[in-house]
Design a protein around this nucleic acid. Structure first.
Lengths: 181, 181
DNA sequence: ATCAGCATGTAAGGCGTTACATGATTCA
DNA sequence: TGAATCATGTAACGCCTTACATGCTGAT
């Protein structure tokens, strides 16, 4: 069982529900998924070609007029590959926060810089949290199928952790302002 | 102001406090830093060579007996580069959690698989949280300088977010077990 | 004696991003 | 008419990981 490229799994996961073009796939990834996974045309299109030769997906020309359009469809083999991945125990969870890196090394700078970096982080998180809450509300009003439950869980993961981040920001700012300088 | 490679900044940050060998640097990164940033010999050694030619660091041969040993020291230019980076507003914060990806697409699998994946995640987080708490306790008993405050803040970030993750795990498991199937 | 840990480094490959290149269509 | 969006793709580059290659030293 070869280690699959993750972008392949994202695409198979999306195609499991509906046929999509590469462009559509990019848009889907840029939605709620982007909080825990990213994708770009530069890896989506090559992955589509590759998975087609491996018979995990099939394409059909759905061009409209002069506008080229290729719609992809998942095959039974593709569904199998997706399920296999879901059943694998290994999951790589990585966090790379440059803000924390900067904070860790802030002894080389100043309290002011450290505070400023935390404030920037806080602002970004607040913006993203708003968006996640919109996704969450939309899901709550539309919990019709099994899939929505899974979407809901990933969204609440984002909300819960971002709220924890914000509480930490408040604490951290307080410490940086109050601790003897 | 060229975008600096992050591994360079990690190394400069560490060398700001003490002279170190490449091997030492790897060990430091594998400690508390590894929760938000990683490094490997494969990028540490080339970075050291590169930063030496750019005069951000200096090396001295500190071999003991037949064992080769090169100790690096940060230069004034190196300190400047580090401070510049700390003062840049841009910070890239990325989270890539394969567990969430699997959960998002669990409609293609089963509740059992989804639960299993969450349990694996929970186990990993619990282990990591224990370690973070040890770091935290060590820091609390040894808050002698400014740097320790920054280390403490990054460690509490980890603790706070991991505790939020665990609460979410409990909620998520409950939902997966109770919701109509 | 042997194994874990100290110590340096290279090579190949994987994976992804950014920028570029091209062109059609829709809507203001 | 021009901009935004739809739509596909390639090329170059960056960065990192994994595996490999080598050898010394200290502890058991």
């Amino acid at each position: 069982m070869a280690r699959e490229k993750k972008i392949d799994m994202v695409i198979l996961g999306l195609l499991f529900h509906e046929d999509l073009t590469g462009y559509d796939i990019k848009k889907r990834i840029d939605g709620a998924i982007s909080f825990f996974w990213k994708g770009s045309f530069g890896n989506i299109y090559p992955s589509l070609k590759d998975m087609q030769t491996r018979k995990l997906i099939q394409s059909s020309d759905t061009s409209v007029g002069g506008r080229e359009k290729i719609t992809y469809h998942i095959t039974e083999e593709g569904k199998e590959a997706l399920k296999e991945w879901l059943n694998e125990d290994l999951a790589i969870n990585e966090l790379r926060y440059e803000t924390l890196l900067k904070l860790f090394f802030s002894g080389a700078g100043s309290r002011k810089t450290a505070l400023h970096n935390i404030e920037n982080f806080e602002k970004q998180i607040k913006t993203d949290l708003e968006l996640l809450k919109v996704y969450c509300k939309n899901l709550e009003n539309n919990m019709k199928n099994e899939d929505h439950l899974y979407y809901y869980l990933t969204v609440t993961f984002g909300i819960d952790s971002y709220e924890a981040y914000l509480k930490w920001c408040t604490k951290a700012k307080k410490m940086l302002r109050l601790e003897a300088r």
